[in-house]
């Protein structure tokens, strides 16, 4: 037991922080789906753009140095949220709004097209090479050495991701549940046509959803970029697939579900990697996904009535 416990704890921390990365992005997928019933496949790319904007901002203010680290991170996140939200708004305007009311597959294809477009756009504008992110968030939240000499640690950059993912999930749940705009969002998710008849500007609600989703992705992009230490135009695709899986696992449309799905996927991958050869981690994680969907087709926390795509 004494031999087993410290490593188990460390793996649990590894799994949770990986899961939070998935969750942070999954929230965006799930929110858009919950409100307009469309899977925004370009969300991963919005995340990638968020990371790039963060890097550009850090590089730009890096010269003026002397600022404390937390302020640098806050500025990078804020600028990234602003710019990336504009992208989110524009994407909806260009690729989805003209297709409103068309068969469900049409905006889906449009979203995939948008995803490929954005990937190539950044590829051409920024080059396809890995760009290093500065090592800003250093240090550890805690480090504890166990009797057997094994040190369990959690770095600040990983702790920050877990904390931010939980905070955003809570804030978002409250906002959707309590605010006027949140109520409009819920109305739209129940019946778009009826909401429109009752005087809700549904186009505005949908625009808002995309802006909010993009803002969430931007926060994730900057923090995850800083934690990993490098970004390239393809990170959105790689993480996007996993985050989308997490959203489906947790029940797409459900915000706590995204968090749960992310954590479950991250922990499963980590433990598969820890106790089996690393090659098997995706096999195990996706087998689990298939199993859960066999028994709960709407995901862990999904409502059975949403059956759209």
């Amino acid at each position: 037991m004494n031999e087993f416990l410290p490593q188990f704890l460390q793996q649990l921390i590894n799994g949770l922080s990986l899961g939070s990365i998935y969750a942070l992005i999954a929230i965006g997928y799930t929110m858009v789906y919950g409100i307009i019933g469309m899977i925004n496949f370009a969300h991963g790319e919005v995340f990638m753009i968020g990371a790039y904007v963060g890097l550009v901002t850090l590089t730009a203010i890096g010269a003026a140095a002397g600022l404390p680290v937390w302020l640098l991170v806050v500025i990078a996140v804020l600028v990234s949220v602003l710019v990336t939200s504009a992208y989110g708004w524009a994407i909806e305007r260009v690729a989805y709004r003209p297709l409103r009311g068309s068969p469900r597959l049409v905006p889906l294809i449009s979203a995939i097209g948008m995803s490929i477009f954005l990937q190539n756009y950044v590829h051409l504008a920024q080059g396809s090479r890995d760009m290093p992110m500065p090592d800003l968030i250093t240090g550890y939240l805690f480090q504890h050495e166990f009797a057997n000499g094994f040190t369990v640690s959690m770095s600040n950059s990983r702790a920050l991701i877990i904390f931010v993912a939980i905070a955003l999930m809570v804030a978002l749940t409250l906002y959707i549940g309590r605010s006027r705009m949140g109520r409009a969002c819920r109305a739209c998710s129940q019946d778009m046509g009826m909401a429109n008849l009752l005087g809700i500007d549904t186009n505005r609600v949908i625009s808002f959803t995309f802006v909010l989703g993009a803002a969430l992705a931007a926060v994730g992009g900057v923090l995850i970029g800083l934690s990993v230490g490098k970004i390239n135009p393809f990170i959105g695709f790689v993480v996007g697939v996993k985050a989308f899986t997490a959203a489906v696992l947790g029940g797409i449309g459900s915000i706590p579900g995204a968090m749960l799905g992310g954590a479950l996927l991250g922990i499963t991958e980590t433990f598969a990697s820890a106790y089996l050869p690393t090659e098997y981690k995706d096999v195990v994680a996706f087998s689990l996904l298939v199993l859960i969907l066999l028994f709960r087709p709407t995901g862990l926390l999904g409502r059975p009535d949403v059956e759209k795509v």
């Binding site: 793996q11 590894n14 995850i224 990993v228 393809f234 790689v238 991958e269 820890a274 981690k281």
Partner: peptide, 13 residues
């Protein structure tokens, strides 16, 4: 292309 190898690192440790 993966960006999280922390589980593997813990295993090595």
């Amino acid at each position: 292309g993966d960006t999280d190898f922390s589980a593997l690192i813990t295993k090595l440790k």
